[in-house]
Design a protein around this nucleic acid. Structure first.
Lengths: 338, 338
DNA sequence: ACACAGCATTAGAACGTTCCAAAGCATGTC
DNA sequence: GACATGCTTTGGAACGTTCTAATGCTGTGT
C-alpha cells in the first residue's frame, strides 16, 4: 500500500527551505520585480531542489480564473479537428493561455461528460469542435463561461459560432458536377453530425436551381467511413447515380470502397466528392475532389471570439461564416454517355 | 466592459436558496445516503435552478486528488494516437476517472509546456503518447505523479512504459520482403521519434541475419509524410532499392507519393511497407502492407499500470511489451528480375 | 534630527470545496 | 421521565495559492 512516494512540494516547503515567507516565494514565482536578487536566488534554488511546481488548482481558486481554455472534440480520429485545433492553439498560446482537450468519442453522453469535466475544472472558455450537443446544453454552459461552437450553425444569442458556409460548399459541388455534364447527382447525408444540415440544404437548393428537382436523391449516411460505405451501398441497390456528394471526406473514402467493391470505376462510372479536404485526401492515390474548409482559420477566428469575451469587450453573440473552396482532384469527371 | 454576466454559482448560493447549510449541499452533491428526502429534493431543485456545477478546482484542492488523468499526445494529427487514446479512455472511464488531453504539436518545447500544464492542474497520473521528452523530464514528473510512457522504450526505474516490440516488427517486415525475394531493402528512419530506434535496430539485425549486411541502406526521415517523401527522394537519387521500409504509415504515404512522382510503380518497381496500420491504410486505394501495433491494447495496458500506481499496489516501474503483427496489403510483391 | 518616501518583506484573509467532530432530534428502552 | 441509540444536520478547519494592507528598513531633503 502507501504508494505515497508521490508528494507535491508546496510553496510553504520552498519558503521554509529558503528561509523566507510564503508570500515572497509567491512573488518570485510570479516574477515580481520587487524582490532582492539574493532572496530571489535562494528561492529559485530551493524550488529547483524540491522540484516545486506551482499548484494551478490553488491558484485558479483564488484568482477565479485558470488561464486555460477547454476544447471538446467530437472525434479524436478525424484529422479535420486537429487542423482546427492547431489554429486554436496558435492564438491561445500567443495570448498566454493553455489549451486542454477532451474527446466526446462520437457519443452524445460521453461528450456531455467531457464538457462537464472541463467546466468543473473551471476553464476560462469552452470551444466545441463539431459536437453533437443540444443548443440547451451549450446555452447552459454559456451561462457560466464563454462558449464558441466551431463547424456548426447556431443562431443562439448566447453562444458564439464559427463555421464555413455549408450551403455555399454544396453549391460549389453541384455546380462543378453539373458543369461536367452530370444530372443524376445523389447525396449521402451526414445524419445529425455537425454541419450536415446546411450541406444537405445547399445540395437540394442547387439541384433545384439547375432544374434538377426530379433528380434529387438523398440517402442516410454519417460522417464516418462506415456511413459513407453503407450510404453508397444503398444508392447502388437502385439505378445508380453518375455522381455522389458525400457529407465529408471520411464518408467519401467509404463510398470509394463501396464502389471499388461493386467493381465500379471512379470517376469513369461514378464521380465522388467529399468535404473537408483532409490531408489524406491529397495523397496521390486518393486525390479526392472535395470542398476545403479553411480549418486553421476556423480555429483562429474561434479564439478571437473567445478573446473578445474573456476580455469583456463584447457581450452579445457573434456568428462568423467563412467561405469554403472547391478542390478538384481526380475522382470527378464527365459522365460517360449512356 | 464588465463582461461579468459569467458567474459560477457556489455551494453557498445553493445552500442559501435551499435554506440549508453548505455541508448538507455538499452531502447531497456527493450522493450521501444520510440525507432526508425533502432536503435532498430542495437542494437538487435549488442547484438546478441556479445551474450549479461543483467546482472541481476547490474539490481537488481539499481532496488532494483530481480524479483526472492527463494524457500528452505528441501529435494530434496522427490517428494512431487516437486509437491508443480510445483504449486509455475506456479503462479510465470504467474506473471513474476522467481524461484530459494536451497536444505537444510535434515540438519538444511545446510538449514540455503541455506536460507542465497538466501537472500544474494536478492530474492524478500522466500518460505520454509517443512523446519526444527526455528521460530526465519524465523522471522529474514521476517524482510527483505516476507516469506511463506509451510507444517508446524506457528503461527508467521510475517511469512505467508500454510499447510494441519494434525490433520484432522490423523483423516481420524484413522476413516478409526477403520471403518475396527482395534483397535490396532500404529503411527510411524515424529520426528521434518515439519508437524509431528499435525499428531501425531490428531492420539492421534482420538484414544481417539474412546475410544482407552489405545491402543495408538507411536514410534519414521522420514520422511524417514529408519525412517519408524526402527520405524516398534521397533513396531514388542513387541506384534504387526494390523495397523500402518506412518508419510509420504516414511516412509510407510520403514514400508512395515520391515514387508516384518519379513514375515508379508500386509494388512492381518498388515494394513499400509502413508501420502502425492506420485506418487509412486499409482504404482500398492505399492498401498498405504494414505492421499493426495493438494500439487499443497499448492504451488499456497503460491504464492498468496507472491504476496499480494510483491505488498504491505497486511502487517499482514495470515495462510492458506487446507483439506487433504484419498486415499484408498490396504495396508489396516480389521484385521483377533485373 | 525628523518626517517622509520608497522599496522589500510579511501576515492573514480570502477562494469553494471536503470532512471531522459535534450538535440536534426523534425514537425506543428501562 | 431519564437516558442511550441512531440518524440527520451543521460549524469550522483545512487544502495551496494570491493579494491587500501593513510592517520594517534605508536613504533623502529640509
Amino acid at each position: 500500500m502507501a504508494g505515497n512516494r508521490f508528494k507535491h512540494p508546496t510553496i510553504h516547503d520552498v519558503a521554509q527551505k529558503a528561509g523566507v515567507s510564503k508570500s515572497l516565494v509567491s512573488l518570485v514565482m510570479r516574477e515580481s520585480p520587487h524582490v532582492s536578487d539574493d532572496k530571489r536566488a535562494a528561492v529559485m534554488e530551493a524550488a529547483a531542489e524540491l522540484g516545486y511546481r506551482p499548484n494551478a488548482v490553488a491558484r485558479s481558486l483564488v484568482r477565479q480564473r485558470s488561464g486555460v481554455f477547454g476544447c471538446v472534440l467530437s472525434d479524436l480520429h478525424n484529422p479535420f479537428f486537429a487542423d482546427v485545433a492547431d489554429g486554436i492553439e496558435e492564438v491561445a498560446f500567443a495570448q498566454g493561455y493553455r489549451t486542454l482537450l477532451s474527446s466526446g468519442f462520437l457519443d452524445a453522453e460521453r461528450e456531455s461528460i467531457a464538457i462537464d469535466t472541463l467546466l468543473q475544472m473551471r476553464v476560462d472558455a469552452l470551444i466545441m469542435l463539431g459536437t453533437l450537443s443540444s443548443i440547451d446544453e451549450m446555452e447552459k454552459a454559456a451561462r457560466t463561461v464563454p462558449v464558441v461552437v466551431v463547424g456548426r450553425t447556431t443562431a443562439s444569442p448566447f453562444v458564439d459560432s464559427v463555421h464555413d458556409d455549408g450551403e455555399a460548399g454544396a453549391n460549389l459541388v453541384v455546380d462543378h458536377l453539373v458543369g461536367l455534364g452530370h444530372s443524376r447527382i445523389a447525396h449521402i447525408s451526414g445524419g445529425r453530425g455537425a454541419g450536415a444540415a446546411p450541406r444537405l440544404a445547399g445540395y437540394e437548393a442547387a439541384m433545384r436551381r439547375h432544374g434538377l428537382r426530379g433528380e434529387i436523391s438523398i440517402v442516410e449516411g454519417a460522417f464516418t467511413r462506415d456511413g459513407g460505405r453503407s450510404g453508397m451501398d444503398t444508392l447502388l441497390a437502385g439505378p445508380h447515380p453518375t455522381a455522389v456528394f458525400a457529407p465529408n471526406d471520411y464518408a467519401a473514402y467509404g463510398a470509394l470502397e463501396s464502389l471499388d467493391g461493386h467493381g465500379l470505376k471512379v470517376p469513369e462510372d461514378v464521380s465522388v466528392i467529399g468535404y473537408d479536404n483532409l490531408a489524406f485526401s491529397r495523397i496521390g492515390r486518393i486525390d479526392l475532389t472535395t470542398v476545403a474548409q479553411p480549418s486553421r482559420a476556423l480555429g483562429q477566428h474561434a479564439m478571437e471570439l473567445v478573446m473578445e469575451r474573456v476580455t469583456g469587450l463584447r457581450d452579445d453573440a457573434r456568428h462568423v461564416v467563412l467561405a469554403p473552396e472547391l478542390i478538384v482532384g481526380s475522382t470527378t469527371a464527365g459522365p460517360v454517355a449512356s
